[in-house]
Computed example of a mutant assay.
Amino acid sequence: MPTVEVGDLADGDFLLDVREDDEWQAGHAEGALHIPISEFVARYGELTEAAPQDGRINVICRSGGRSAQVAMYLGQQGVDAVNVAGGMQDWAAKGRPVVNTEGQPGFVL
């Protein structure tokens, strides 16, 4: 499974958050695209519209399990996708900004 460390992500890298709605609302990376894993297959078209055509998709969840599943699925579709190791827990631990749905400081649920 291709992975990327949180510290290796640059500002502006495309990030797909596959956590559920309550987790997203509590706190997420600003600018990430949110498609819950439970809705992923049905909403796949949203990803193809939003993702950069020639860029990598960095998939994130709380700790890395769900995002690994989605990254593997995307890879099987021929998409350049990697799992973000440690997920949002590592993102927050590394001091990367976490915001809630109102744009205020959030937390990882």
Rank of each mutant, 00 (worst) to 15 (best):
D54V: 10
E23K: 09
A81H: 01
T48A: 13
G78T: 11
G75K: 05
R43P: 01
V79H: 04
R56C: 08
E46C: 07
E20P: 07
L15C: 06
A68L: 15
A29W: 00
A10T: 10
A50I: 11
R62I: 07
G75D: 05
S38M: 10
L74R: 04
S63F: 08
E23V: 06
G45Y: 10
D22Y: 15
D22L: 15
G55A: 14
E23Y: 07
L16T: 03
D54S: 15
G75R: 08
C61W: 06
A68D: 07
L74W: 00
G65K: 12
G27P: 02
V70E: 02
H28W: 03
I57D: 00
R62K: 12
L15M: 14
I37Q: 09
P52F: 11
E30Y: 08
D13I: 15
A26D: 02
I35W: 00
E20R: 13
P52K: 10
M72N: 06
E46D: 10
H28S: 08
A81I: 07
G65H: 05
W24L: 09
C61Y: 03
F14S: 01
C61G: 01
I60G: 00
A51E: 05
D22R: 15
A71Q: 06
W24E: 01
I57V: 15
R43W: 03
I37V: 15
G75A: 07
Y73R: 08
A42H: 12
D13V: 11
M72W: 10
I57L: 07
E46W: 07
L16E: 02
G27E: 00
Y44F: 15
V18I: 15
C61H: 02
M72C: 07
A26M: 11
Y73F: 14
R19F: 06
A50S: 14
D54C: 14
L33Q: 03
R19W: 03
G27Y: 01
A42F: 13
A51S: 08
Q76N: 12
Y44V: 14
L47S: 03
I35F: 02
P52Y: 06
Y73E: 04
A71W: 01
P36D: 06
G31T: 07
G65S: 13
A29I: 09
S38H: 13
V41A: 12
C61E: 02
Q25W: 11
A26F: 07
L47Y: 03
F40N: 00
E46L: 08
E30N: 06
V18N: 00
A26L: 13
D17L: 13
P36Q: 11
Q25I: 13
L15N: 02
G45E: 13
A50H: 07
D17G: 08
H34K: 14
S67Q: 05
D80V: 14
D54L: 11
H28V: 05
S63E: 04
Q69F: 08
Q25E: 15
D80T: 11
L74S: 02
